[in-house]
Amino acid sequence: MKPRLAGWLVNGALAGCAVLALLPLLWMLSVSFMAPGAASALPPPLWPAHATLDNYRTLFALNGMGRYLVNSLAVSSAIALLALACNLMAGYAFAKLRFAGRERLFQALIGALVIPAQVAMLPLFLLLKYMGLVNSYAGVIVPAMATIFGIYLVRQYARGVPDELLEAARIDGAGEWRIFVQIVLPLLKPVMVTLTIFTFLAAWNDFMWPLIVLTGQEHYTLPLALASLAREHSEDSELMMAGSVVTVLPVLALFLALQRHYLQGLLLGSVKG
């Protein structure tokens, strides 16, 4: 094959794939600006004849989208920060501190990764019910405050911290906590960014657990609100698309801004452990 033709084929195929990947998202954006009912026409319109923000206005004024957006932001931020703290400390301890049974405990955690999270959900619901946390933000946040994946990610990264640095600080008389805050944390900054955006995106997109534990609308996160809207307003495609935009745009923007860190985390986390 001539190199020129091969180049056209490769780039043409890539462009085709990119169109397939992005078309549904662009279509969503376009329909969200259409007047109610305009998308249900033949031929299906690709562009709004008269662009309008009515759907967004309806969502925020009548369907409480603002509240769900704030819920999602608050719950996801809380999970990201708390999980960051717990996973950082544990991951660092597994990487750099000596204690009896360290390897065995870590292997046990990795082994537990084969258990699907859904197995725990039924008793977890009962546990939270007795703790009075069902239908509260805490019910979503508390079980997500530490993840095996996060601990693993931090450990992989923290192993690169030179032992000599920590030993020198210990000889100088620094306590373990001071060493962690003043020496280790600055070195772990890249993995902190990676872990934060990973956890935030996962919390934002999570559906099954919030669906189980949040029983009242006032606590709904965006995916829950959208799923319940989809059951009530399945005919209003323009309204639903505006709701999808509000749900997807924040995470998509966050990903675009911090793409490099996200992809690094994905690769770091997938190395065979």
């Binding site: 549904p24 969503m28 997109n205 965006l222 995916p223 959208l226 698309m241 997807v248 998509l252």
Partner: peptide, 12 residues
């Protein structure tokens, strides 16, 4: 598509 919310894109 990977970073999008399942529920939102399923609706699309």
């Amino acid at each position: 598509p990977v970073v999008t919310t399942v529920v939102a894109v399923a609706v699309i």
